[in-house]
Design a protein around this nucleic acid. Structure first.
Lengths: 181, 181
DNA sequence: CCCGTTCCATACGGTGCCGTATGGTGACGA
DNA sequence: TCGTCACCATACGGCACCGTATGGAACGGG
């Protein structure tokens, strides 16, 4: 975000901007804090306020993300500048916060810590990837409607599945003859 | 990628650069084509050359990505600039190519088209998200070693699971009383 | 009525990058 | 030996942006 274009978009000039903020970085820092509050803390608090069972909370989170109207452009913009010295710590903080929350949800569902963690990681990875697809190839995603709902259903099913065969056959490593198919 | 910094990193100057390339965009276009070839076409061809069953190919793809040594910085850089007029089409092309290939793998595993597509979408989303985490919060990912392998196993299990209850109970929509837990 | 404070605009210097113009150097064949 | 050509450097103009300096306009209180 550059301040000169921002100023003209607001019908103002740099002069006025630099009266409200000492520097561009100060604006960025303020915006980052706002973003963290609105996009993470507030969401978690809202989910916690509703006294729903953890599975339903997870479903809400997932379907909310994988069904159409995604207003998550901020996440995308920040992921794109993940290396910026001001963005990096903020991004790390919300990632940790979100991952932590998802992990506790899975723990409340009865998964032991390590497994809950793995599931949370996969779930959040899927969310991040969905964001990228939304921007770089939206036409490849299911269109809003029944296809989109079916996809969301598939995602929650895959993430919440009991996965009985997890340590039944510990993954044939690279060069082996054939697989279970 | 800027050409002046690039030139100094090569111990050269802009003058010589503009002798080899007509413009900066020409370099970018060439790099994009190279990237697509090396990161997508070549990978698919290599997987197809080995006469392995589709499940094993999928496992190789997944474990290759979700186990440590990921040399995928190019993907990340391009995802970050997904809106660039030259990057966008290239990104869309490889996304379509990769998604298409993963979909055919799931089809070869016996999934009907719509389901294969959904699974491919989830798998590729997970990959993209993994990339983002690798950059923005690598310390939250399982460290290279047994934890990382366990995570990779979990991912392949989740993505390849038979998921018997897919259309058994079609997802309780938002405000319902309780869930199956 | 005048002064200070708030808020905004204009104007300027500085920086990093793009792309071009132009000159220089070495190799190589006529 | 001399041109020619591939290859590279220097130098310049231009642009977009950052940040500062400075000058108002509006307004309220002494």
């Amino acid at each position: 975000m550059a301040v000169e274009p921002l100023a003209v978009r607001l019908g103002a000039t740099k002069g006025s901007f630099y009266w409200h903020f000492r520097s561009r970085d100060e604006l960025i820092a303020a915006a980052l804090q706002l973003w963290r509050q609105a996009s993470t803390t507030a969401v978690i608090e809202r989910l916690e306020a509703a006294a729903a069972p953890p599975e339903q909370r997870l479903r809400q989170l997932i379907t909310h993300v994988f069904a159409p109207p995604a207003r998550t452009s901020a996440d995308l913009a920040l992921l794109a500048d993940a290396d910026h010295p001001l963005v990096a710590p903020a991004l790390a903080a919300v990632t940790e916060q979100r991952l932590g929350y998802i992990t506790t949800l899975f723990r409340q569902l009865g998964f032991p810590p390590a497994r809950a963690r793995r599931r949370a990681l996969l779930a959040y990875s899927a969310y991040l990837g969905q964001l990228q697809l939304l921007r770089s190839a939206p036409n490849l995603l299911p269109k809003p409607g029944p296809a989109s709902s079916a996809y969301a259903d598939h995602v929650v099913a895959a993430l919440l599945a009991d996965q009985p065969s997890t340590n039944a056959a510990p993954t044939p490593r690279l060069t082996r003859g054939t697989a279970t198919a």
